[in-house]
Design a protein around this nucleic acid. Structure first.
Lengths: 251, 251
DNA sequence: GTAGCGATTTGACTTGCATCAATTTGGACG
DNA sequence: CGTCCAAATTGATGCAAGTCAAATCGCTAC
């Protein structure tokens, strides 16, 4: 590692190298100048690696840090007192988990690795200190949080207005574009999450998700075998999502 | 018409006085020391007064400012290309509108006054500058945005898991506690929004909202005449919202 | 006061999706 | 390679809430 000798930070976590990270154009480094990158590296900690199903944090964990997904993927969900789960998001490499928890003492949700996953950890006290010094980084944080609000509003819209088919088409397209951002195939990918998680996230029953998948498959729009998915006709998927308001909007 | 002559409101914005504002324990001033209050006053602008139905901004307005509701109330919604509306929130005095728009060039939603409403305007460039200098204010902004994400997740949960009755009970309780925070009656208040807005917000048909209101009324849980509402049995309402997982959770 | 019109309520009918039930598939592991 | 259990699929049935239609309420304006 380049700047090898750094101050012994007592907890002695490994320092991550943002300079060398392939996700630096997606993650927090995106926002800041090269010469400020060092100060970001000073506060980021190389997180550990989580196996599928392991919790990164849950609603009883005291809130300390946000986490950037480095590889793998993460599911966040709220668990109610009654034990019911509501999946609130899926996070892929380059995306930041924990922004919904920056109020209150504990995390506002539970984060679980969907597969073998590695993360970088940003302790919030240090992060807030740093964003106070770097206006572009502060701006970027506002940007990310605002985006998160918008995403959640979009989800609410999907849940309240759209049919099962529309919801699933939307999710597939969202995943597709997020794979594309990472320079991976937007049409051939493997779903990081189980049908159950998809169903929960989209407010559907598993059976419905399964049925829609096979319906799409019969229509030749997608090809799906288990978690492997191929989008055969992206335009058709977009058709499905657009509420064809032409005819909805009479006159 | 009553308010015939109103001040020619050229942009010439009046400075608002946070010192004298009765909402200073709810709004942004909440976060900062008395001696820093002046710097907040320096950037805040006394916004104009909006009549019922007037837009404060819409999705084509370039994003410049966040707005604190001073009196009255505001509805935010997303309008799709097809003209469909999804209400994303209701904002009451002391609450901050526009946090979802802090990314992108234009506002992410449309904000409309539900009644005669006055607001304070915080230009974001100045606000960001200030939060860079006042760590507590920055922290509070993160807090507010995070809260907004959580609210939205709660809404998503409500939409995907709860029945019509549960959704409406939740909304009534939310309004109740927000009135209470402002030291107004938590049991007698008048709804700022129409049935239609409630329906849209909660992902229901107007007819369903109406039916649930009368059902609650027949059960003696509430009394409602038009927009005037009296919560006769708050505990019963809380009962309705809790998904009585006792029996849901078999075994 | 009363005309006019949007908001609200009420009733009758329909439907998309949940639920229940029963297989089938597939990956982990001895 | 076969066992086992969770995940996924497929089919049959019921219901909560949507849709359509009509009546009533309650402003606002003249």
């Amino acid at each position: 590692m380049a700047r090898a000798i750094n101050f012994r930070q007592v907890p002695s976590p490994l320092k991550a190298s943002c300079h060398q990270c392939s996700l630096s154009n997606l993650c927090l480094p995106l926002a800041i100048q090269d010469n400020d990158l060092d100060s970001l590296e000073d506060i980021v900690q190389q997180g550990r690696i989580y196996n599928r199903g392991e919790h990164i944090f849950d609603q009883s964990t005291p809130f300390r840090s946000c986490f950037a997904v480095k590889s793998g993927s993460v599911k966040t969900s709220i668990i109610t007192e009654g034990g019911e789960e509501q999946v609130t998001g899926f996070f892929m490499p380059g995306e930041l988990v924990g922004l919904d928890s920056m109020s209150g003492e504990s995390y506002a949700c539970t984060a679980k690795a969907l597969e073998r996953t590695s993360v970088c950890e940003f302790p919030v006290d240090k992060l807030e200190e740093l964003t106070g010094k770097l206006p572009e980084l502060q701006h970027h944080m506002y940007h990310l949080m605002s985006q998160e609000i918008q995403n959640s509003h979009q989800l609410a819209m999907l849940l309240s207005k759209n049919t099962a088919e529309e919801r699933i088409a939307s999710l597939l397209l969202s995943l597709s574009s997020r794979f594309q951002r990472r320079r991976m195939s937007p049409t051939n990918f493997s779903l990081p999450m189980a049908r159950n998680d998809i169903a929960n996230f989209l407010g559907l029953a598993v059976e419905t998700v399964s049925r829609v998948f096979t319906r799409f498959q019969n229509q030749g729009i997608i090809k799906a075998r288990g978690r492997e998915v191929e989008l055969l006709d992206i335009e058709a998927l977009q058709m499905v999502t657009r509420d064809f308001s032409r005819q909805g909007c009479q006159q």
